[in-house]
Design a protein around this nucleic acid. Structure first.
Length: 466
RNA sequence: GUCCCCAUCGUCUAGUGGCCUAGGACGCUGGCCUCUCACGCCGGAAACAGGGGUUCGACUCCCCUUGGGGACGCCA
């Protein structure tokens, strides 16, 4: 059997982190089995669906590096087909018309709640004579679900889940206005799209039971279900758009790399022994449903950042430079000069050891920009007091004499000066660092001199000489 | 409230009856390295929710309790 999975978000907002993981699992599973992932937009709720959200979902998936087969399918566009299936069910006696008003239904729930029963429809139109139908109201169509026995789903993650049919009511298939409900639409679409594996959040687990009833009554092959545990927020509650979930673009904004987010999301709820760093090719090779855990996971930013710093360090130098330049342009709000751009490749390797995110990387690269007089952090200013200015004058003198501006020479010269002054290197390096970067921490001081070049270095030192 | 699902360090997890005096990772923390900050290296604290069974033997199987989550819409 060929593997076909689908990612089916509703376009009511950005691609949030939970959806991103669901998409990733679907994508990985399909790739692993040589199958394909389809994209279906569940836009049957016309009031809440927006084109902007559809675009955001596409962009989110692209950013994450996930693709899908063919054109995205609009669920709304298939409404006629859904209605057709409902009519088929009706004709076969497996569905019926229900004329209950919303008020009636609400009252039903109230009494059910008061009596401590589950909140379901009592099936009052199930066997009622159609002749009793009010002429002025249009009915909804409900599934004539089995009332005895039990419905079972053998979930690939959660195992066998059984619910007594007496616990389930006759769900609405077609609304009074003739549009399909989600329950009907998913089943029809998944069937028509030949989806073999439905991988989704386990908030759908109980839905799967009800959906199975439709498959059975239509005599359709039931796809395999895999309900993956939800991602919870730091407080342990379900993450949703209304509750703490951020869109993937928020992580892009924080300077998270797609590769890092993929790795992080993968390890949230899935494992392969003690493996932690798993790149995408490896993930495709290893991913399967038996590695998926059953319990919910909490979202943990420090962990994501740790992975991110790994991927930043592992990244191709040129690519990282491009990202750094891009980030700097964003934070500075201006284009970079040729001189500034030229310093980036020199410094990027030293900088990336110190950054957990692209934002941090750009921040730590700030001293490479031409912005004299340098903004001075308090701690750096403290390093420029006392005899520091005098020391900087002597450093300026020896550095002016340097003819071959490279790390090796600079090391010799600066160490030589420290020795001549009978100072520990730190006593000289710290004032230099402050003058050169405006900060009390930076890459190695010989590197910093080298990155900046002779003229700029001398100018910066000059700004703080006695 | 009813139904369904879940339960190992703070967090993500390994563990599928003896290999567990429970392993790894993030975070926290002591130290080394050192021109600062990182990186790196060495070390530390930190968990099987509780109670019953089953078994020669339970983190692993069963039951109950507790805790957490989810679903109960003419939303998806």
């Amino acid at each position: 059997m060929s593997v076909i999975t689908r990612f089916a978000p509703s376009p009511t907002g950005f691609l949030h982190i939970g959806g991103a993981r669901t998409a990733l699992f679907n994508w990985l599973f399909a790739k692993h089995h040589g199958g394909e992932m389809l994209l279906r937009i569940e836009d049957t709720d016309r009031a809440r669906s927006t084109d902007a959200a559809v675009t955001a979902i596409h962009e989110g998936l692209h950013w994450l590096g996930l693709d899908w087969q063919g054109d995205p399918i609009s669920q709304f566009a298939r409404a006629d087909r859904h209605a057709e299936v409902a009519q088929q069910l009706l004709a076969a006696g497996n569905a019926y018309k229900c004329y209950c008003t919303p008020e009636e239904l609400a009252a039903m729930r109230e009494t059910a709640k008061a009596e401590g029963r589950s909140l379901r429809y009592d099936g009052r139109w199930r066997d009622r004579d159609p002749a009793e139908a009010p002429s002025d109201a249009s009915p909804v169509i409900r599934l004539k679900a089995p009332q005895t026995g039990a419905t079972v789903v053998n979930d690939l993650v959660q195992g066998v889940v059984t619910v007594q049919n007496s616990e389930l009511d006759d769900m609405v298939l077609l609304r009074a206005d003739g549009t399909p409900t989600y329950m009907l639409a998913v089943v029809v679409d998944d069937h028509d799209m030949a989806v073999s594996h439905i991988i989704r959040g386990d908030d759908h687990l109980t839905n799967a039971i009800r959906q199975r009833q439709i498959y059975d009554l239509m005599d359709w092959t039931v796809p395999l279900f895999a309900h993956i545990p939800l991602i919870h927020g730091a407080d342990g509650a379900k993450m949703s758009k209304r509750h703490g979930a951020l869109g993937v673009e928020a992580y892009a904004e924080m300077g998270i790399l797609p590769a890092a987010l993929r790795n992080y999301l993968l390890r949230l709820g899935w494992s392969h022994g003690d493996e932690e760093i798993i790149d995408t090719d490896q993930a495709i090779a290893w991913f399967d449903l038996d590695g998926v855990g059953k319990s919910a996971a909490r979202f943990d930013i420090p962990r994501l950042e740790s992975l991110n710093s790994h991927y930043i360090r592992a990244m191709d130098e040129g690519d990282l430079c491009a990202l750094l330049a891009q980030q700097l342009v964003k934070t500075e709000g201006r284009d970079l000069s040729q001189a500034e751009l030229a310093r980036l490749p020199l410094a990027v390797n030293a900088l990336k050891e110190r950054a957990k995110t692209l934002v941090e990387l750009a921040d730590k690269a700030g001293f490479l920009l031409d912005n004299r007089p340098l903004p001075m952090e308090d701690k750096a200013a403290g390093l420029l007091t006392g005899d520091a200015p005098a020391l900087l004058s002597r450093a300026h003198a020896v550095l002016s004499a340097v003819e071959d501006w490279n790390v090796e020479t600079l090391t010799e010269v600066i160490r030589g000066l420290a020795e001549a002054e009978e100072l520990k290197l730190g006593k000289l390096a710290q004032p230099l660092r402050a003058a050169l970067t405006g900060r009390n921490s930076s890459p190695g001081i010989f590197d910093v001199l080298y990155f900046l070049g002779q003229p700029e270095s001398l100018d910066r030192i000059g700004d703080h000489m006695a």
